[in-house]
Simulated assay, not measured.
Amino acid sequence: MSQSFVLHWLIEQHRADRLLCLVLDSQNERDMRQRWLKSSRYEQYASVYGETVVAELADTGPFLFTFDQPDDRRLDALLDRPDSHWGWLASLGKGELKPWVRHWQERLLVGARPHQALYRFHDSRVLARALEHLPVEALPAYLGPAISVCYWQGSQWQSTDNPAPGTCPLPDSPPWLHLPMPEEPAMEIRLANAHRFLLAEHVQAYAGLACAQDPHIWLRERLAQAQAWGWLAPERLEFLLIQSLHTQALAPHWQPRPDETPDEHFDRVYQLSRSWSGEMPS
């Protein structure tokens, strides 16, 4: 995993008098984030989720850090393990950090209430897939003020230049939201969105569960169950999460019957649950 490509890209951007920027996944790189926070000036970093409707997730959301030198030693530990999906690198014009933060804040939430989801732009796999499929004319609306980006593309480093860096309005139907998603990052996105949903809508019960077991392990098990049953549609997944949160073990009737389709399975369980909770006549 040679770092020469990244170092060459960093030197080129620095020589062009551009601001170097690290996009860091704070959820999985908490120690690294703290190291950068302690060694950065206030104007050199920003939390993307801060001061947004998902501010309660700021501690686990992405952080953007600018740095001055292409040979910054703080990068070494990250460049040594590019396949750990810690994030990616970008270059900006001087003074463009705040506009770039606003750019991503405008693109954070996907979908309409109550089924909104978070767009994980800071995941190198999400970025790489978008840049692989987007036409050149769609790049300015996607990358905004970023002049160039450097990221891990599965097996090698790659860079992409923005043909028209600057502030761009969010398209009515962003093309990057209509790309097929590989299963691994799709599961991480579902996990983040399920965590956010339970924090926002069922925080007391979720906190009680967290006292007894690791909530992320519990969420992964629930999501695996939803996937096995074909219940990944937002309303079905929410139903499974809520019911599981308030019940130690799901009753036997929750299991699918032989030759039962996912639609038939969900409708049967949903109607039985409503009936037993008194929401409809039995």
Rank of each mutant, 00 (worst) to 15 (best):
R107Y: 07
G111A: 00
P140E: 02
H202T: 09
P175Y: 01
Q213I: 14
E132S: 10
W100F: 01
S155C: 12
L177S: 08
L134A: 06
C168T: 12
K94F: 12
T160G: 07
E188I: 10
R129D: 13
A164H: 11
Q204G: 10
L134G: 08
G87W: 01
P185W: 00
L219H: 02
P82A: 03
S148K: 05
D161A: 13
Q116V: 10
L199K: 10
D123T: 00
V126I: 08
E106D: 15
A210E: 14
P114V: 08
S155F: 12
R196M: 07
R196A: 05
W100V: 00
E137N: 13
L131K: 12
G87D: 11
C150P: 04
R196S: 02
Q105E: 12
P180Q: 05
V110E: 14
A210P: 12
Y142G: 11
V203G: 06
F197K: 02
W104V: 07
S155I: 12
P140D: 09
Q153E: 13
T160L: 10
E201V: 04
P145E: 03
S148Y: 02
E96T: 02
L127C: 08
W86N: 05
V126S: 00
C211F: 12
V136Y: 06
L89E: 09
P180V: 08
Q156W: 10
R120L: 15
S159C: 11
P145H: 05
H122K: 09
L134T: 08
L198Y: 01
L219M: 06
R120C: 06
P180C: 04
V126N: 01
D83V: 04
P182Q: 10
M187K: 12
L139T: 00
P114H: 01
R129K: 11
D161Q: 14
A205K: 10
K98Y: 01
E183W: 11
R113A: 15
E183R: 11
R125M: 05
L108Y: 03
Q153I: 08
R107P: 13
L131V: 09
Y142T: 09
L139P: 13
S91A: 03
H122V: 06
L118K: 03
L89V: 04
G111N: 09
S155T: 15
H195Q: 11
P169T: 08
L139N: 03
L109N: 04
P185F: 03
H115G: 04
L127D: 06
M181K: 07
L179M: 07
F121D: 01
W104G: 03
D83N: 14
E184R: 13
E96G: 01
Q204T: 15
G144W: 02
F197T: 03
R196P: 05
P114E: 09
T167V: 15
H122P: 10
G208C: 07
H133Q: 15
L170T: 14
A210M: 06
S148I: 04
L143Q: 07
C168V: 13
L209M: 07
C150Q: 03
W176S: 09
P135H: 05
I147A: 13
E184V: 15
E184A: 10
L143E: 02
P185T: 07
I189A: 02
G87H: 01
L209G: 00
L97V: 00
W157N: 00
G208K: 07
R102C: 11
Q105V: 10
F197E: 06
W152Y: 04
A186C: 07
E132K: 14
S155K: 15
Q153S: 11
W104L: 02
H195D: 12
